[in-house]
């Protein structure tokens, strides 16, 4: 089932377009990686999809029955937050449940269970009472991932989620995302990554963004439109 689509999207910075006419579709039940060299506008692609920036032209649309509050987002360098922020790890992860709870709904047993599940899968349960500012870079990253996952999003959007994580943690993380997508057909994970080689066995699809317009050819996939967003199907 199609949950989101971008049609002929153009966007850029300071008058210079970095996204040229990209079209793509996000299906539910997929674990997708976005890859490409530095400056290929991978993060920008995510931000356009999330509606954090508006395209110059073209459109970003979501399926009518898709709940926009069921999107979880991990920004790039999520771990570079203000280290003086007075919060325990578990408090931060709990805040992942807030989008679905809104202002007043009670934080109940279901949420507590989700928080514990998320912390355990991220390998951060033992650190739950630590202050987030005192964690290492990789641990901060894991805490932020746990926060996103505690939300139980239908669409998980992650920008370089494994930054600072050791090899074992990275593979555990890919396996978690694989399990998460496989457990429910409505779920999708979309992540920007530079570690395509190690993530490949877990992925369903790779969206490759090429940095330079002139040497980009578009040679695959139903949903790609030249000259920018080529997709490679990996099944």
């Amino acid at each position: 089932m199609n949950i989101a689509a971008m049609n002929n999207v153009v966007y850029g910075y300071d008058g210079v377009p970095v996204i040229h006419n990209v079209s793509l579709r996000i299906e539910s039940g997929e674990f997708i990686a976005v890859s490409g060299p530095n400056g290929a506008a991978k993060s920008t692609l995510l931000r356009l999809l999330l509606g954090l920036v508006k395209p110059w032209s073209g459109e970003v649309s979501y399926a009518p029955d898709f709940n926009r509050k069921a999107i979880g987002y991990l920004p790039q360098q999520a771990a570079s937050f203000n280290s003086g922020f007075p919060s325990k790890v578990i408090e931060l992860v709990r805040s992942g449940c807030y989008p679905k709870l809104g202002l007043f709904r009670r934080f109940g047993a279901e949420q507590h269970a989700l928080v514990e599940w998320s912390l355990r899968r991220a390998g951060m349960w033992e650190y739950r009472s630590r202050k987030i500012g005192g964690l290492s870079g990789g641990q901060k990253q894991k805490a932020c991932i746990a926060r996103v996952m505690a939300q139980q999003p239908d669409l998980v959007v992650l920008d370089e989620p494994v930054t600072g994580m050791d090899a074992g943690s990275r593979l555990q993380f890919y396996q978690w995302m694989r399990d998460y997508v496989s457990a429910d057909a409505r779920r999708t994970v979309l992540m920007v990554t530079h570690g395509l080689d190690e993530a490949r066995p877990y992925l369903d699809r790779v969206i490759r963004l090429e940095g330079k317009e002139e040497d980009c050819q578009c040679f695959t996939s139903n949903s790609c439109s030249a000259p920018f967003g080529q997709e490679v199907l990996l099944h």
């Binding site: 926009r68 987002y73 991990l74 999520a78 937050f81």
Partner: peptide, 21 residues
């Protein structure tokens, strides 16, 4: 008191807050 959850999220990071509604 009413906006404590939103304010926590907002103070931590504005973009994730925006995505979270």
């Amino acid at each position: 008191a009413v906006f404590r959850r939103h304010l926590y999220t907002l103070t931590f990071d504005e973009e994730t807050a925006a995505v979270g509604g």
